[in-house]
Design a protein around this nucleic acid. Structure first.
Lengths: 226, 226
DNA sequence: ATTAAAACATGACATTTATCATATTAAAGA
DNA sequence: TCTTTAATATGATAAATGTCATGTTTTAAT
């Protein structure tokens, strides 16, 4: 079992507040898991009873809408925690988590997390601040969905993916999403998404090579995104 | 100065966790305010440095979008607290709060709230659960905005207003919103909102008398809302 | 390597929604 | 009360977006 006190990603999550002793204890109660691309970490409605710490990889958090289509609420990557909201609310998770690439995650049982939560004030404060950040982000997202056009949302999302997850050596976006997934982030039909990507390509804003997307003119995209 | 320990709405907020002594101390540090309909409680970007406890009335939380239109993110009513997220994040508020009717609110300075927050575990847990609830609600809202039609969202919103804020003796919805405000909850143009309301009226789903809205066929509305 | 399935792409068209113009009504001030 | 302004309403039209059909390309499985 790998040791939490030596784990680099710990530094990027709320867990950074834990003491040496707490980290040692954490190493014993956590379980380590390899998740393959496309596999489900947990599903909407499930009782997770703990949180996941992402050591490596990216996953999407989705919610099934009334019309049967999945909507991608958020992308989460290494260093972040999953399932905090549901743990605190003491409710089933309201979102599903699915790996977008191979992942390495650690599961920490609820009882243990709640122990640190009660005893380590800085830790609970960190968790709370993260959730508050998520809420603010959700508010922003909501307003965008309500007020911006699909084109604006696509431009904004491409920039977001670039700025948040970076690019490969060939300049293409690191997160590789299917057109369908991209559409379900911006909240539109897959065909509309594909069409707009083609338009962006024709206008020289982006370059498309299979699933790979390269941003050629970020400034123009920024203007489009408003 | 009225006494917090005798305030009924306290029972409905996170403050219910406070002890008798804490409530006595609270009475001394809080300030009481009457806010007239249409007045601003705080504005996006402001440093509020405390939280508001709503003793009476309803207000809207809005966010200005890039195109200059306000979007109503949430309605908040008596018994609820305002400004928790910003207090915990230690950031300016990301939403504006405007009274939809005459209100009575109490302001509690940040330093005092944080005092209870640190010492009273149940209180901080309550606040956290509220924020988690808001986040879950925001996720739901997001998916609705992304996937449902304007008609579905209008039907859903009318039902929400009915179920959450109730009705007057004449059966009309208690919260009286302008067409413009209703439109900025569901995320559409004012004209579209007005048109759909007229349609609903013609179909016998609702009754319109000036600003007053009466739900005549909730079941049909539920079907429409999906 | 071949085949089947899934993802991507694009045209044609229908539907939804926004915008602009213009009445009408209601509310607020002088 | 009168007058002015804001809110509501509706038509006409344009623009945005969704849906269906169909073909192509890519991916995955045998």
């Amino acid at each position: 079992m790998s040791k939490c006190e030596q784990c680099i990603v710990r530094e990027f999550s709320s867990l950074k507040a834990l003491t040496k002793e707490e980290l040692l204890k954490l190493s014993d109660c956590k379980t380590s898991h390899i998740i393959k691309k496309g596999e489900v970490i947990f599903e909407e409605g499930e009782n997770v009873n703990g949180i996941f710490c992402i050591k490596d990889g990216i996953c999407k958090l989705t919610k099934l809408s009334a019309n049967g289509k999945d909507h991608i609420v958020k992308l989460v990557t290494k260093g972040e925690l999953l399932g905090q909201r549901s743990m605190i609310s003491d409710e089933p998770v309201n979102l599903s988590a699915v790996a977008l690439e191979d992942m390495h995650v650690c599961f920490i049982p609820k009882a243990d997390v709640m122990g640190y939560f009660d005893k380590n004030n800085q830790f609970s404060m960190n968790v709370m601040k993260t959730i508050c950040g998520d809420l603010k982000e959700a508010d922003d997202h909501m307003v965008n969905l309500a007020q911006k056009t699909v084109k604006e949302r696509l431009a904004e999302t491409l920039l977001y993916l670039h700025d948040t997850f970076g690019k490969n050596e060939d300049e293409s976006l690191k997160v590789q999403l299917s057109r369908d997934e991209l559409a379900s982030i911006i909240g539109t039909a897959t065909e509309s998404c594909i069409r707009l990507l083609s338009d962006f390509k024709k206008s020289g804003l982006i370059e498309l090579t299979g699933k790979k997307i390269v941003l050629k003119d970020s400034n123009a995209l920024k203007k489009l995104a408003d």
